[in-house]
Design a protein around this nucleic acid. Structure first.
Lengths: 216, 216
DNA sequence: GCAACTTTGTGCACACATTCACAAAGGCAT
DNA sequence: ATGCCTTTGTGAATGTGTGCACAAAGTTGC
């Protein structure tokens, strides 16, 4: 389930505060979901709660981590060291959850060799070597749209089966390869859509506006 | 619908290549969705297709833009000028879709005054003034988790009703305020989950591992 | 003008997610 | 021990999204 990471975050926060047990109701509020949904999600992992008491925070934390595969280390490569790539390289949330960044790669010779977040940027030609030598299993693509598909093909050919894509294109991959896409512009567009709805919806004189727009 | 921005992107790409009309099947492939789903989505906006021919690219582009509210300009403020905030400030995908960044704000006095992407970073004390003076309607929060909720409260109090949150916390907001969350770590966790599934699923000796883990 | 072809728009069935509501289960006080 | 209280886990109902499959509609060629 895609909500497990959210529960994990809420539980981590509770554990830091020293809470020993938590009810489905409390955890649901912290995670921003319905309590029945939370219980049903957790029941899919097994019966880890105690009726009349709730869930033991540390134990549940471990069970969810295990379900998500976070009890093992995942090796990540970041391709594209622009503004976004730099932000990702320095993002603390990776290391703390078992994600180890094996290296940064870029095609720009001015960027190659720079030290970023304690790593030296390598040339994109090293891609296949790095994937094999470090056992990279997840690749982050933070390049311009034009380069994304061919780089994706290369990492897939090198054996990677999970890709996190920040480039604004739909990557096509063979069966068995997972791609997740994060698109900053799309998130803003969805907000704008709702914002417009609140302000009264799209005007109904759209057609005439269109004619002006294309004639202008 | 949350898929409209994806269609918009695919249509933009077609328009640049000079394509005049497109069938639901072609557009569906470009957007990575089922063609029936695409037609159903578009039919919610009205009947903009021609049977036997397809959709006129420019016209559909305009209709979707209008539906999403992109025919007007949206004013955005970015709070938190760390690595991520800098990446966002320089992201080209905003301006090209009608999002205008009114300003960057940070609490760190070493950061305030710096020039980034053609803008001068302002102190967070200026938050309410900036929102009112520039008519900010969407706020991006790219701060550490600890600062996010109180800053969110401030922007909501200042009248903003749309927030894009990059901080790893669940923000609580009053009715009528939209929050979208982007969490880089969660995306990786979901990939790790699927990756683990491919590799054979979680080991069934989890309980004993847990005991070792908490005793150690 | 007519027939063959293409493509849209949508009714329908199905699968999946969500929420309610409650019985079963455990803890706690007396 | 016994009975009350709290909270889980889940059956059932409801809602939502997805995709097939086809009729309606429009185009093109003759």
């Amino acid at each position: 389930m895609a909500r497990l990471p959210i529960y994990l975050r809420a539980l981590s926060s509770l554990a830091e505060r020293g809470t020993a047990t938590v009810s489905s109701e409390e955890l649901a509020v912290a995670a921003g979901v319905n309590s029945a949904k939370l219980r049903k999600d957790l029941s899919h992992l097994g019966s880890y709660g105690t009726r009349g008491v709730g869930y033991e925070v540390e134990y549940l934390l471990y069970q969810i981590s295990r379900e998500l595969g976070l009890t093992q280390d995942w090796v990540v490569a970041i391709i594209g060291v622009g503004n976004l790539g730099r932000a990702l390289a320095g993002y603390g949330g990776f290391a703390s959850r078992g994600f180890r960044v094996a290296g940064l790669l870029d095609a720009d010779t001015a960027t190659v060799g720079q030290d970023i977040a304690g790593m030296t940027v390598q040339h994109i030609d090293e891609l296949e070597t790095m994937i094999k030598d470090h056992g990279v299993s997840i690749t982050v693509i933070a390049t311009p749209a034009s380069a994304a598909q061919s780089l994706c093909d290369r990492v897939v050919a090198a054996g990677v089966t999970s890709v996190l894509n920040f480039a604004p294109v739909v990557l096509s991959v063979p069966e068995g390869v997972d791609v997740r896409k994060v698109d900053l512009s799309i998130e803003l567009q969805i907000l704008a859509f709702h914002e417009q709805r609140k302000a009264g919806g799209p005007e109904e004189n759209g057609t005439s506006q269109y004619i002006e727009a294309v004639e202008a």
